[in-house]
């Protein structure tokens, strides 16, 4: 009785014989993979270059079209940075003075105490300085959380 099992067994034996006559394709496959990698790398380069070129073109185009608006932004940035720089210099000078007096041992008996001076100083900081302080604190918090999550031990 010729069964399905016999059929598939015969088929497989036949295919095995056929497979035995085939030359190894290992190196051929490796060569194809290498070629594909080279083509992919070249394509990536082309994409990166054309993307950069398009970005520069778009940036130049936008810059020309919105030149008045951009000039306004630059003026504002220049003025703001001047104000902030002035305040930072002032804060630096005040803080330096506070430390020097504190270091000389005149903190407790001074006309105005160090803590009071510092509080007055901090409360006078412009909003831009607070933005930077909160930004740095936020980034530090996120980095801390990220480190904790990454280094947590598996349960």
């Amino acid at each position: 009785m010729y069964t399905l099992k016999d059929f598939f067994k015969e088929e497989q034996n036949r295919r095995m014989e056929e497979a035995a006559g085939i030359r190894p394709i290992g190196m051929h496959v490796v060569n194809i993979i290498e070629k594909q990698k080279a083509v992919r790398s070249k394509k990536r380069w082309y994409r990166w270059l054309s993307g950069s070129f398009a970005f520069v073109l778009a940036a130049v185009g936008i810059g020309i079209y919105f030149r008045e608006f951009l000039a306004g932004i630059f003026r504002w940035a220049d003025e703001s940075s001047g104000v902030v720089t002035g305040r930072i210099v002032e804060i630096y000078e005040n803080t330096k003075f506070s430390f020097l007096t504190w270091g000389a041992g005149v903190t407790q008996n001074a006309e105005s105490g160090f803590i009071e001076k510092a509080t007055t100083e901090i409360s006078a900081w412009p909003v831009q300085v607070w933005y930077v302080v909160f930004l740095v604190a936020g980034v530090a918090l996120l980095l801390g959380v990220d480190k904790l999550v990454r280094h947590r031990k598996p349960a």
């Binding site: 497979a19 085939i22 190894p24 394709i25 290992g26 190196m27 496959v29 490796v30 993979i33």
Partner: peptide, 9 residues
């Protein structure tokens, strides 16, 4: 990988 291909082809 070439060796793997030869083994399983």
């Amino acid at each position: 990988y070439g060796a793997l291909v030869d083994k399983y082809q």
